[in-house]
Design a binder for these strands. Structure first.
Lengths: 348, 348
DNA sequence: TTGAAAGCGGTACCAA
DNA sequence: TTGGTACCGCTTTCAA
């Protein structure tokens, strides 16, 4: 337990009869130093396994080489995958990731974000649940770098990386149509950009196909980690009560789809023959569900990767003239829950 | 975008005609300062929404008020839940969480751990995949505080928080027995403490019941995020080839159990009537699988909570005389996959 | 009860 | 190409 004190620049300098400044230069690979000196320094640094002191560096430069991430939930696989994408992108470049959870709570999100900012993260990646733009605008106006992922916020101009939600709605709806469904329902999510986008894509496609605009079921806003499935179940029960029940359902996300499938099976109906189901998210368990669930893959890791790259670029670029937005393409993963024609094209 | 510089102690001091020292004292709630002064300072601090500079504080005190977590995978729900437990425990006390991922790779784990240490985290929480004790010992000998979770490492004395794996094996096996199974098989996991413990509990219980020691299937060491299910599938196929096939299977974890169930169903057998199945982990999807899976809940969030508390206590206590070990109790969540008697006692 | 001064371990500016 | 020096913002020690 001899807590031997860590090596400092000063030690190396003394060691090599150089000044601290010179050693620092060698470390930063700057060119205003002779090759010979640089080599000597680097060699010694490797020998001693020197680790720079992040706190000191931060104090001097204002940079922490860390990025902060705030998500509504850790348990949701989407955000876990996003985190993975971020970490794998930033770690090779020496950045670290500080994480925080808002539990879908607007005020908690603010507090957690402020905390990360107090820790001087170089950039923030937020899967924000704010309803109004003020908070993020406040952060932006302070000059903090911030990239929104997943949802956008009405009335807010901001850097953003997300999925093309309209496209999700389109793909899902069109797929159900292709599988022979003609009464396609949608179980929508809460009043947030992603859910609204998916619904827009659904409506757009329906009217494009000249299909009847089916009564849309509104699943109450989902908070926390559970509840979504229950909402899906309730919504589906309502759909089943329609005079002419749907023969296809596009659900806001997988959890909702799972609840809907349960309702369908409980009603003694068959999936996909009586009612086909498509979800969104392509969770890791979708393929071993009671009925393997067709789903739109949001490529969450890719979102994390792009958000991280955008964040790091913004850090380096100092002032950015305008906001950036980047949409990650999605893909349908077809499984049994929508295979009415007996053909499963893809089986991830 | 006027990046107005953050408020510093100095500003508050000047403001109030005090010295920086006094302001600092007020902030730390020390008693060598008059109540009046303290109040004045605190009031101003609230007004200006002062945020202490973590880097400066770290440089001065050596503490970062952050904890580092290294896990083999973010996508595994177990670790996501552990992370949640940690964050919820440390955040109210002002700590932050830095996360890193080893991808089940021994060398990567070392690098990531060193990186967190270079960032001077006050403590490490490691779900380590090290096979030998050297690396962790090295860290300990440097005086770094570290708490292992989940697996232990043979030959290593260390602080640890985990589940009672023997108990898991016992509960699962006994449960299958209670459900009328008499030829109970086990699909074991890789050569790590958790898997070995579960197998030990299984064997112990079998012999206690005077049941035949059934051939144990060895699922190859699982690496990465996928593969476990495939292993479970293969192992089950072998079990099905036995002259007398099992009527109950306890699988190392849920993913393995899912693969096993697939093999059983593909063979045209019924679950649980022909073969009952119990997994471990109680994943969030277990209840909506093709056959809802009985599983031993490891209470991952609790593990995170206890590990975090242990870590923070060790930080405060400075030198700790001995290592601590804490086992979180587990519980069986019974579902259809093992309900041979038609009674489902619990239905989470 | 208060404050001056000396760090903590780097980086940046300017002079040599 | 090098090094001296002055910070960065906070805490700690010691003296007033």
């Amino acid at each position: 337990m001899t807590r031997r004190p860590p090596v400092r620049l000063k030690d190396i300098a003394k060691d090599l009869n150089l000044s601290v400044v010179t050693v620092s230069r060698a470390l930063q690979n700057r060119r205003d130093i002779s090759d010979e000196t640089r080599e000597r320094v680097l060699a010694r640094i490797r020998e001693l396994d020197y680790q720079p002191n992040f706190a000191a560096r931060t104090l001097a430069t204002g940079r922490t080489f860390s990025i902060g991430l705030v998500v509504p939930s850790f348990l949701h696989p989407f955000f876990a995958e996003v985190a993975k994408g971020i970490v794998e992108t930033i770690r090779p470049r020496g950045y670290g990731l500080l994480i925080a959870c808002s539990n879908e709570d607007v005020e908690l999100e603010k507090r957690e974000t402020e905390h990360l900012l107090a820790r001087q993260v170089d950039a923030l990646i937020l899967a924000s649940v704010q309803q109004s733009p003020e908070f993020i605008q406040e952060i932006q106006s302070r000059g903090s770098i911030c990239v929104l992922i997943d949802r956008t916020i009405p009335g807010l101009r901001a850097n953003h990386v997300g999925t093309d939600d309209r496209e999700i709605g389109r793909i899902a709806t069109l797929h159900l149509f292709d599988q022979g469904c003609r009464r396609i329902a949608h179980i929508r999510g809460p009043e947030v950009s992603t859910a609204l986008g998916r619904m827009a894509g659904y409506r757009e496609t329906l009217s494009g196909l000249g299909l009847p605009g089916l009564h849309e079921m509104v699943a109450p806003v989902v908070t926390g980690d559970s509840g979504a499935e229950e909402c899906g179940h309730r919504a589906m029960l309502e759909l089943l009560r329609l005079r002419l029940r749907p023969d296809g359902v596009f659900a806001f996300n997988d959890a909702v789809a799972v609840g809907a499938m349960r309702a369908i099976l409980e009603a003694g109906l068959r999936i996909p023959n009586d009612i086909a189901v498509v979800g969104c998210g392509n969770g890791r368990w979708d393929h071993i569900l009671r009925v393997p669930l067709s789903s739109i893959d949001q490529c969450a890791a890719k979102i994390g990767e792009l958000a991280a790259k955008m964040a790091m670029k913004l850090v380096v670029e100092e002032a950015s003239p305008s906001f950036r937005d980047s949409l990650v393409p999605v893909k349908l993963v077809m499984r049994e829950s929508s295979a009415r024609l007996g053909v499963v094209s893809s089986c991830a």
